[in-house]
Design a protein around this nucleic acid. Structure first.
Length: 375
DNA sequence: AAAGAGTGAC
């Protein structure tokens, strides 16, 4: 579920600003998902509607997050009646939407049906299928698709294909295979790009393979055609934090040159100080984040509210609690309840009641937080 | 219209 949210995150945020938002307001404002399905199918009859990729992303995301996979199937299968399905781009959209919804067999079926719909299978739809393996965590299928399919359908894997396979190996914890794929792609005349390096850096630094991370960091720095971006630096920050090298991490975030730290950079540092039990530094870096061009997000609040509660700084926890609502960040109710319980324990009953009220009235997410006496 | 890289964790 959290994986699904992450995969769709880019789309749902862009949808907010998209003009489709106003045109299809009726669909977005509908709270009843069964009605959403009916309305979506009705709207799909319009050729113009079917061009709106964002409406598809948004709707499928809503249904998949609510675990209504039958309804995802209902709206996506319904699309096959339109001529658009013989265009590769439309098939790719269905494959990737099924993939993001965790429905691998459906994704594979759309791919398999392409020839009978006179739709050419190029490396792009091949990559969409490969991506669906990873998004559905069907790692057993990755090798099968990557090693057998290209020959069957006469496509040549490209840089995107290799990047997807490298990500799959990193997620499987098969770091040696991820490294060897990096060598193999170069033998096949495909040069690693920024995505390749960032995938490997995140895989290594994020999983306790600091030394391997450093090897690829050096390779990237020595590669004249690659300019590391903030994601590359953030991966290394996470690596330093894992290694408990906080001085190194702080030095890195303060010396990014022309790059600007983002919320992921700050979160990495904040995580480090929380793990060290350093309340003062955690507060300091939270303030820096608030004063920066970025804003704290769900992960920031989840970490800090939990940490402040653990350190019994319930005044700060309450402050963060309120901030998280102002920023419309949805944090696990269990963490929010920690703050209420802590305030009550310190006899700050009025403040606790106030927070319960904020939770009940929130439009972002209605929390059913309780005063300990209610339980 | 269309494929690939990220944060927490009872």
């Amino acid at each position: 579920m959290s994986t699904i949210s992450r995969i769709f995150r880019t789309f749902s945020t862009s949808v907010v600003k998209s003009p489709a938002k106003t045109i299809y307001d009726e669909l977005y404002k509908e709270r009843n998902l069964k009605t959403v399905v009916q309305k979506f199918k009705k709207l799909s009859q319009s050729h113009l509607f079917r061009k709106q990729a964002n409406v598809y992303n948004n709707t499928v995301h809503r249904l998949a997050s609510a675990k209504k996979h039958k309804w995802v199937e209902e709206i996506l299968e319904d699309q096959k009646q339109y001529d658009d399905i013989s265009k590769e781009g439309f098939a790719i959209r269905l494959i990737s939407l099924y993939g993001k919804s965790g429905m691998f067999d459906h994704a594979h079926k759309v791919f398999d049906e392409m020839p009978e719909r006179n739709c050419l299978q190029t490396v792009k739809s091949f990559n969409a299928l490969l991506g669906a393996c990873v998004n559905c965590k069907r790692f057993d299928k990755v090798d099968e698709v990557f090693k057998q399919l290209p020959e069957k359908i006469s496509v040549k894997p490209d840089i995107v294909s290799y990047n997807i396979v490298i990500k799959a190996y990193c997620e499987m914890g098969l770091f040696e295979l991820a490294s060897s794929m990096f060598d193999e792609m170069r033998c096949n005349g495909i040069n690693p790009d920024l995505v390749t390096f960032n995938t490997l850096l995140i895989g290594f630094y994020g999983n306790g393979r600091f030394d391997d991370g450093e090897i690829f960091w050096d390779k990237m720095m020595n590669n004249a055609s690659i300019s590391p971006d903030i994601r590359s630096y953030n991966a290394r920050l996470v690596g330093f934090v894992h290694e408990k090298k906080l001085t190194k991490a702080v030095d890195l975030i303060e010396n990014l040159g022309c790059l600007k730290p983002d919320e992921f950079s700050y979160n990495a540092i904040i995580n480090g100080f929380c793990n060290n039990g350093d309340l003062e530094e955690a507060k300091k870096w939270y303030t820096k984040l608030v004063e920066s061009d970025s804003a704290p997000n769900k992960a920031t609040f989840a970490t800090l509210i939990r940490f402040a509660s653990k350190m019994c700084d319930f005044d700060w926890a309450a402050e963060l609690f309120k901030q998280s609502f102002e920023q419309k960040c949805v944090v696990d109710p269990y963490v929010m309840q920690l703050v209420i319980d802590g305030l009550v324990k310190e006899s700050k009953t009025e403040e606790a009641k106030k927070l319960v009220g904020i939770g009940k009235s929130s439009k972002v997410r209605r929390y059913n937080l309780m005063m300990p006496a209610d339980e």
